[in-house]
Structures are given as C-alpha cells and as structure tokens.
C-alpha cells in the first residue's frame, strides 16, 4: 500500500506531521503511523493552554491491538485541540492530514530534528524492510 506523504509538510521520526499556518503549527500523525497502528479507538489529547516541550509525550493513541505515545516534535503552547476526535476517532485513519489533525501549537522555538517529505519517505521505506 502506497503511503501518502504530502510534500508541503514536515515530519518527525516519531511519525507526526507539522503544517505551518501563520505563526502556529498544526500537528497530527502520518498516514504511515495510522496504517501501522490500525483502527484508532481511543485518544487522549492535552487541554488548550498546556505547554509542551519538544520530544515529550503529549498524549496517547490506542488501537485494538496497541497503545502508542504521541510525541511533540516541537515545544510550544497548545492553542487548539481537535475535540471532534473525542467521540469518533475514524478521521485519524481516514484523513490523517485533514480532519484527523490533533492539536494546534504556538511554537516556543524549541524543536527536534524534523524531516522534509523526501527524507521522511526514505525513513518509512527503511522501516518497511
């Protein structure tokens, strides 16, 4: 199955994507990650106002089979949370880069090493073997 990796986004090695929107950043999990996890059935996200530090866990995502931490690829303050996902998590599987977005952050400037689409594609390819 081909993995969808939009070129305009940046990516973390823990499989989150980042979209710059003005001076804020929208974060979600990648198509590769949702596919590896399987059907998402449970999610825990931070509340608005939470201050994240880069590389720290900011939530939990669970499928029938597995439980995974969500890692913040950048530090910053959470300014919005996708509350629609509280009752239905299907968008994370069906539209991970759109309706499946997780949080919106005002960056503090602290960030881990991020990958562009090409480097992330290579990173996914590496793990497929």
């Amino acid at each position: 199955m081909a993995t969808n990796i939009p070129v305009e986004l940046r990516y973390s090695k823990s499989d989150e994507w980042l979209r710059m929107e003005g001076d804020e950043v929208v974060i979600g999990i990648t198509d590769y990650a949702q596919n590896a996890l399987g059907d998402i059935v449970y999610l825990e996200l931070p509340t608005v106002g939470t201050v994240l530090s880069a590389r720290a866990s900011f939530g939990v995502i669970e499928s029938v089979k597995a439980s995974s931490d969500l890692y913040a690829p950048i530090g910053g303050e959470v300014v919005a949370v996708n509350t629609a996902l509280e009752s239905a998590q299907e968008p994370i599987n069906q539209d991970p880069y759109g309706d499946g977005w997780l949080i919106r952050v005002r960056p503090s400037g602290e960030e881990e090493e991020l990958l562009d689409a090409q480097a992330y594609a290579a990173y996914c390819e590496e793990r497929a073997h």
């Binding site: 399987g38 059907d39 059935v41 499928s63 029938v64 089979k65």
Partner: peptide, 11 residues
C-alpha cells in the same frame, strides 16, 4: 498475519 483489512472489520 495479524490483520488483513483491519482488526475491527474482521472482528
């Protein structure tokens, strides 16, 4: 095989 189409669908 752990899954074909998804655990929930198979379940």
């Amino acid at each position: 095989p752990v899954q074909y189409r998804g655990i929930i669908e198979e379940h």
